[in-house]
Write a protein that binds this DNA or RNA. Sequence first.
DNA 1: GCGACAG
DNA 2: ATCTTGTCGC
Length: 274
Amino acid sequence: MTPVRPEFAPDASLSRSEMEQLQRDLAETAVFEDEFDFDPAAVRAESSDSEQVQLGQTTGQAETVDSEPPVVAGVDQAFAADGEKAVSAIVASRGGEVIERVHAVEPVEIPYIPGLLSFLEGGAILSAFEALSVEPDLAVVDGSGRIHFRQAGIATHIGVMLDLPAVGVAKNLLCGRPRESLDGYLPEGARVAIEADDSVTAPEGTVIGHAYQSRQYDNPEKRHVNPLYVSPGHRASADTATDLVGRLCAGYKLPEPTRLADQFADEMKADVGD
DNA sequence: GCGACAG
DNA sequence: ATCTTGTCGC
């Protein structure tokens, strides 16, 4: 698919202040509330036999069409050639079934700067989306969305440019303040709101995402897992973004679309010449 | 000056 | 993100 808002292209030749201004403009365009063309409750991480039966039955065409799970695009990056090439991988799946995999390789133009990640990886991701044939309903991007200084993390950048519902899934917290301490043991399924503090361009206290415990061990003393940081990218609220990620997890810390893209990115990286 | 920082 | 062996725990 092609960008609907090309004016927001993550041009790596922009000055730092121009990049930051572009992000502020991007955040103005971003929609941090649910705006889907699909039923979020129909999103699933794994395929089920019952669905196969339904699709095969002759119980009304409209019904069978509606029962088709939304297409989710998992997006992840890897770097090759000593960090000089950015490899972006997208794995599209429907109800857990992989339906397409594409990738793109672009030269790395700038170093990693916290807050400006989309200018490092955005180009490769958009190239990969150009190569994608299917129309995804949702994108799950590695990195933050609204949990960002200017509310325009990479998930927001990609979502707005493609006008595609997107959620960001990060392994570390970029900014914001957890409503409750995350030091203690969080049981599986727990979510803690991440609020805007003075480092974020949003009213103090605005919920910009959640710390989400997608996986946890039973014994708090022996071993524990760190939570995921989920935030709206575009056309999704913080609550629904976390609901969606929860539905996309299948026993592992990371949601399935991310794991699939992660794996494919590694394969393509080796292909390019690790 | 100090602190803080996705991938 | 990436560089890397073994090792602890379920």
